[in-house]
């Protein structure tokens, strides 16, 4: 897939992804970004090469004498495997697609505000809430701050805030203290994947009014 993304995970995130030490929720976001970004895929290949070289420099350990035979026995007693051709059958990243098919908390979108819907995933971990957000065309979200970290990847369409326009594949990290007001593009709805580590806090004077819907809020 071609590379039009402008916002990427940083090197240390990619390295932790390559080493497999990144948290599940963040890994979902990084893998979604990789689906769109050939630059980061090339970077990841080089990091995987580092990992492979470190593995080959580890101290080899002697195997049991019959270990090869035992593996061949298992292979011979199993059916010939189907060819794994990696096809996804969707424009969405593989991991997101799998979550949609297996792990939606509810099959329907839930309304968060007049312009934002949410669909939550159950991902087997409690550190982050992982969800899809749908912003209506031209929809404004309330201005808000973040109490925790929030990772966002644009999956379809685009949205903007005071700083930039974010398009398919763009990867964003919001930190506590980042106040912003995202807005959906005029020409169509925008769907984002997000992982949020703590509830956000509204900053507008009437923020308390919307708080119930904003327990978990996009972007």
């Amino acid at each position: 897939m071609s590379n039009f993304t402008n916002h990427h995970p940083d090197e240390s995130m990619l390295l932790e992804f390559s080493a497999g030490t990144l948290e599940t929720a963040i890994s979902i976001c990084v893998s979604a970004h990789l689906h769109y970004c050939s630059h980061c895929r090339a970077q990841l290949l080089r990091l995987d090469q580092v990992g492979s070289q470190i593995m080959t420099q580890s101290d080899p350990m002697t195997l049991a004498d019959d270990s090869f035979e035992r593996v061949m026995e298992k292979i011979d007693s199993a059916d010939e495997p189907a060819v794994d051709n990696n096809t996804n059958g969707s424009d969405l990243p593989f991991s997101v697609n799998k979550l949609i098919n297996t792990s939606l908390v509810s099959k329907n979108w839930k309304r968060l505000s007049s312009s934002v819907d949410i669909a939550r995933f159950s991902t087997g971990q409690d550190n982050f809430e992982v969800a899809l957000h749908k912003i209506r065309a031209g929809g404004k979200t309330p201005k808000h701050d973040h109490e925790g970290l929030e990772y966002t990847v644009v999956l379809k369409g685009s949205f903007s805030d005071e700083n930039a326009v974010y398009r398919e594949g763009d990867f964003l990290l919001r930190q506590p203290g980042d106040v912003h007001q995202p807005m959906g593009a005029q020409n169509g709805e925008c769907i984002c994947l997000s992982a949020l580590s703590a509830p956000i806090k509204p900053t507008s004077p009437l923020g308390f009014l919307i708080k119930p819907w904003l327990r978990i809020n996009p972007m």
Partner: peptide, 10 residues
């Protein structure tokens, strides 16, 4: 766990 680590590498 709905996702295996392998799922991140497609």
């Amino acid at each position: 766990l709905p996702l295996e680590n392998e799922d991140f590498w497609h």
